[in-house]
Design a protein around this nucleic acid. Sequence first.
RNA 1: GUCCCCAUCGUCUAGUCUGGUCCAGGACACCGGCCUUUCACGCCGGCAACACCGGUUCGAAUCCGGUUGGGGACGCCA
Length: 475
Amino acid sequence: MNTVITRFPPSPTGHLHVGGARTALFNWLYARHMHGRFVLRIEDTDTARSTDESVQAIFDALNWLGIDWDDGPYYQSRRLDIYREYLDKMIAADKAYYCTCSPEQIDEMRKKAMAAGEKPKYDGTCRNKGLSVTGHAAVRFKAPQSGTTVINDVIKGEISFQNDELDDFIIWRSDGMPTYNFVVVVDDITMGINTVIRGDDHVNNTPKQIQLYHALGADLPVFGHVPMVLGQDRTRLSKRHGAMAVTAYREMGYLPEALVNFLVRLGWSHGDQEFFTRKELIEYFTLENIGKSPGVFNQEKLLALNAEHIRNSTPQHLFPQLRPFLKARGLNGDDTLTPETEKLIEILSPRSKTLEELAENTRFFYEDTIQYEAKAARKFLKPVALEPLELVCRQLESLPDFEEKTLEDAFRAVMETSGLKLGKIAQPVRVALTGKTVSPGIFEVIALIGRSKTINRIQAAVDFIKRQPEKDTVR
RNA sequence: GUCCCCAUCGUCUAGUCUGGUCCAGGACACCGGCCUUUCACGCCGGCAACACCGGUUCGAAUCCGGUUGGGGACGCCA
């Protein structure tokens, strides 16, 4: 086979949503896997709904996901001359004709057909009128009225349609703009697209497009229709299913590689493997392993996958992406990764499912005043904790260094003098240092925040306990 | 309504083409346990599915037919 050329043709009428991103990913991955080319084309022939902001939003999302293109972006709105040329060919060859029926008349036809239990379609009123260019006429494709059109779908297999199901659809609007089915075919032909991977919702357009390829005397590309992504309620994904914009996931602290991994795994598989790096996806991705049935977008699985990707990342990789979350909380304004922050990310990443969570978890390091969680203080900052807290404090004051090993020895010493178990000592210290009952290892925390902060915080906790009225601490 | 597609645990899926190795495997979630100074991580275990009916066959999750269920499309949107 020649070089594989795939494409992604979003229409800029909103942000890039996860379903579209998955389609883009499949095309991109396949092109990369086959060492082919990937084309980006903006389908903006619907001038009423297309916006520049949407175009920018799509670029932004694609960039974030790491999807790059070899050719384009093309804008259909700038290719009108090409479409016009092909339209003229069609008319000259008597494969298309002008139609002056009004939308109201068409509506009437559709209603009648529906009522008669038939598929609503154009009745061909103008088909043989031989109308020529008039001021305000649409152009219809003279579709074959008998026979069968077969799609050889690489994903779904053979799909056939009776041609009498198809009607003379409009390829050029009366307002002077071409329509979807026509421009897609002209573009795919002129851009050399030979592999079309797209959503399931396009299968019904495919016979029309195949007829157009025939009318234009062009070779057919390989078609592959991927099943839809459904929401929890098993209907087609839409806004009411919650966050569906790709960039919304960035804002919630998801890693692009996690979203990519999740989206690709939704409908495609490689044996039992669940976790994939981008490199692996490119290496393993083939069309044969795309499933035929629609799948539900499962937020929980995506979250778990995100946690796994965070866990498997390095602080160097995480930091630039974490920075906006840190800054938003006023926690760290650094532009470069310091050794302390590196260590901090390292110990926090196994217990953070999103970057947002990770940023939240860094508070004990960047904020000097520790807010005790009510529950944590009630449970551990009690008079019984005074002794171990003060003993630990004394030990730390005289320690030669703050290596984790040294700290561990110091705690053991406190265990001996006090006769308390490590838990009784470590938990109050943990609350004193982080305000929570949950944190990374206590020695790691101490080593990280250093001698003076540790001592100050323990001291503050001691003061806190002493300030508590008797009745609150006794019960 | 008409046309098209789909059908394995709650969800994502392996297995289906090339019937037996599948009383169906993995993952998420959930429930136990271990590890541990806490929480995570990790590890061990558990729960849980071949939609239904009929046929072909020595044998069917796998092949065929029907039923049911779900999704999609029927625009001078893409």
